[in-house]
Design a protein around this nucleic acid. Sequence first.
RNA 1: GGGCGUGUAGCUCAGUUGGUCAGAGCCCCCGCCUUACAAGCGGGUGGUCGGAGGUUCGAGUCCUCUCGCGCCCACCA
Length: 867
Amino acid sequence: MTNRSRSFRVPDKPSLDGIEAKWVDAWDESGVYHFDRQASREDVFSIDTPPPTVSGSLHIGHVFSYTHTDTIARFQRMRGKTVFYPMGWDDNGLPTERRVQNYYGVRCDPTIPYDPDFTPPAKPDPKKQVAISRRNFVELCHRLTVEDEKVFEGIWRKLGLSVDWRHTYATIDESSRATAQRAFLRNFQRGEAYMSEAPTLWDVTYRTAVAQAELEDRERPGAYHRVAFHRPDGTPVHIETTRPELIPACVALVAHPDDERYQDLFGSTVRTPLFDVEVPVKAHRLAEPDKGSGIAMICTFGDITDVTWWRELQLATRPIIGWDGRVVAEPPAGVDSAAGREAYAHLAGATVHTARERVVAMLRESGDLDGEPRPITHPVKFYERGDKPLEIVTTRQWYLRNGGREPELRDRLIERGREFTWYPPHMRARYDNWIEGLNGDWLISRQRFFGVPFPVWYPLDSNGNPRYDAPVLPDEATLPIDPSSDVPPGYTEEQRGQPGGFTGDPDVMDTWATSSLTPQIAGGWQRDPDLFDRVFPMDLRPQAHDIIRTWLFATVVRSHFEHDTVPWRRAALSGWILDPDRKKMSKSKGNVVTPIDLLEKYGSDAVRYWAANGRPGTDTAFDEGQMKIGRRLAIKILNATKFALSVAGSDTEAELDPATVTEPLDRSVLAVLADVVEDATAAFDTFDYTRALERTERFFWNLCDDYLELVKVRAYETDAPAGASARTTLLIALSTLHRLFAPFLPFVAEEAWSWWQEGSVHAASWPEASQLRTAAVDGDPGVLAATSEVLRAIRRAKSEAKLSMRAEVERVVVTGKSVDAARVARGDISAAGRAATLEFELTDDPELRVDVTLPPGSEQSSQPSAG
RNA sequence: GGGCGUGUAGCUCAGUUGGUCAGAGCCCCCGCCUUACAAGCGGGUGGUCGGAGGUUCGAGUCCUCUCGCGCCCACCA
């Protein structure tokens, strides 16, 4: 705490202008946020930073949650950890494809050959997208993501994230592709990944399979159609369906085994209307007697329940929906009659919507539609990025086991969720909930272009058909590979696509199949084992709570298989940003404010202040008012610092040694501050950065409002020990506050710190309560409280008399049980309140009463303090 | 249908094991150029802590029921 040089560099007019740019550059040059890779594991705090999707613009929600993580990173760094704080960019996958299509006005057509001289249209025409090869398309993806990433990095730097910018990755870069492919190959070789041809949820717009985790329900209008099937004797059996167009895909009817109405039907057959196909009537527990007529048609496939019935009842397969979402040209097996085939011909090639209209028309004509369709609104499954309902088609796909089919693995993964700490704890329920609801393994292949290819080739038999049972795998050392351009061991390029030759797997991985490996990617798994050992498992996974089912869960799965451990020690879940109407902010509603505008308008510290006021895991309202307050706080810190330093700087003789703190009021302040430090530290240790900020802020404002006013006069007394006591206290408090604020307001803390300290505040040590207690000696927190109380009463009297705070006070009488606590600071009270006479009377009253007498001529006021 | 969370001054929110816990900031009102700060400072008015029971000497704080809101999940013909 000693500072002999007293070489304070306090500006005449403190200002926040330009401090972001100033300190971003300074931090970059000094490398204050660099990870020390010589550090041993126990000295490391490693963060599995979420890679933001760069294909969209940065949302204020990003600023919110990344600020939370940054406060933790800064706190840990100041506590002596070397912080591994990388930044990743999630640039692979469909969002990038969409952005590239719109940005350049192109679309990918894998059948077109590569054009090395291709340049995108100067003026993209969204209605006439230029078809280009897959390689050209991927090149544009790379080009645009590089640009987007620069913009993102600029915003992160301006926000003041203490990221080590030497450690960045992109989920499509070479290292990520190699990591994803290596992990996949190992999963495959251990039997954790497998290929299967099965009914798959399918998005007809993007023409790709999607996983359970990517589904969402949307309420859509529909209608119940009451349709007659026919028993052998011609009597009708009515079913109700919302999807009459699937009647040609019907393979059975089903009712609950206990449903008395249908007992005589079980085991018999009925014929479908229009298509005249004989289908069995089955009993199954999932059929609900009180839904519709209690008997349902099973189609291949209308929904997931159909798949369950189809599998468990071992029914026929009659798919009619193609990959493009249209009714396929040829009727399925079973639709054999002339009438059936003719009816089907009306549907072939039609969209689902059109097919439904035509079927309804035909049913009406044939008399098999009982009454009119009854309109309803019902939930329909959608791909979360899609805009047409999902269909279910049978395709060959890659899967990764995730407990969806195995109770033992499911239980093990739920246990894994208990092996790390959740902040806040209740978020773990969502994890358990999700795993318990899994209904199949993780489908990881996508029929898309910009992603990590499956590192697999297949031999072609003499007829040119792929031998999926005998895949050819690359050597790990050659990763990453692209099977569409690289040649498998033992083959030549000329054999590609030829009978007896080979073909590459055309699919790419689900984006989560790559991002579930961020700890491995960022930590240098296999690429840099020395680094990996120092950072893995990571100390912290910060993320949003809406992707527990995807990112968090998937990361646990991968780590479980590959490392037999959890990937991190803690997971911190952040909440949403809500607009003032309490709705989640979203682009479509046009209520999104650009982060950069806010950073410019209020300053980065102010925006961070708002963000830090959002508690962990709690949704928070977007509130510019909080940013204004944050800005005010930042300015106040500069001004208070200027004041304290100018006072202390006027003392050229005294040693600023803790031992010079002798006045009871000063010791009281340090005792209170020790409590604040203790509280803030404990809060940070449980990731409650909000509480740490609140405590710090409250102390700071009280210090400014009361203590600074109380000691203003005394602190200027250069010859008296009491003056040195005040000055030392001011500097100790200042040093402590600068450090307490540093995780939240890194710019202003650094600016103020730089006026009087060497080095960066962000490399300084976190304050120790014990040191403050030592300096406080016998400091009694009650002294500051009682003294402030008296000062407030004097101010109140002046205010009510409409007098200036400079007005003289004739007499102040303090009575109560605890007058001694105020009496010890009578000099400061007298000076700050401009009270000529101060009297203290000890009474039994537990409340302190303060009677203030103003001089004759002024409006008088005399009343008890509110206590 | 199952699960989780939440409901405290007009607004945004603190209230950690039940006993100065009825608070802070914003807003509003009234004052003040006070040599760190007028983009400031001082003072003040606002609430039967969603509702109803219960436990207790004592409950925003624990229990039960109930209402509202938000989110997650679900095999939703």
